[in-house]
Amino acid sequence: MSTDNHVTTAGKHHHAHHFKDAWHEFISAKEGIWLFMVTEILMFGGLFVGYFIYHMKYPEMFAEGASFLDWRMGAFNTFVLIGSSLTMALGIHYIQVGKNKAASWALITTLACGAIFMVVKYFEYTHKIHLGLLPGKFFAYPEAVSQNLAMYFGFYFCMTGLHGTHVLIGMALITWVLIRNMRGEFDSHYFTPVEGVGIFWHIVDLIWIFLFPLLYLVG
């Protein structure tokens, strides 16, 4: 089968046999990626619905939970991710205009932003683990006012944990396209994987933009 599917010889990409041309392949791939993003948003949507239901039921508890979060760290991370979305978009732009070297630097910067985000998240997590502000049966904070404060941290860790997993997956994907770009596999005619990873990264950023006010700024 290798004769009529994606073959990459000397950096040149040929469109697969069931597509009319490269453009046809590109727009199809892009539609597939957007559909996948819809499923990602819906999956987080389930968590948001749960969050709203319990926030309505226990507003004081959520306010107390949020008071343990440092909004400055959250705001810093929001800033970092928005910046990384910009560098990601720049990376795609540079490939489109044939500046592959600049594109590599843009992708490296994006990766660095992702790493900074995760480092900040690491400090936030260790701080909470230290205080015993943990979900459910691991909750061990002695001075909680609300009776079921553990639930707030259940939401906190589920939502940021699932999001953090997506950041890590995104970083792995960016590394993948970065390596391929440095090998010279992309040019202004073929850059579908970069475009796809870019869309994924923007959606991950977008979800954080919703998580930040919900978790850090309530109450």
Binding site: M43, G45, G46, G50, Y54, L134, G154
Partner: peptide, 26 residues
Amino acid sequence: PILGITLLLLAAERIFGVGIFDPALG
């Protein structure tokens, strides 16, 4: 995707006891 998140939450419920589906935890 809704099944996906529901099942993940159920797994989290069993592993961490997050309490979203557990009346004992609110």
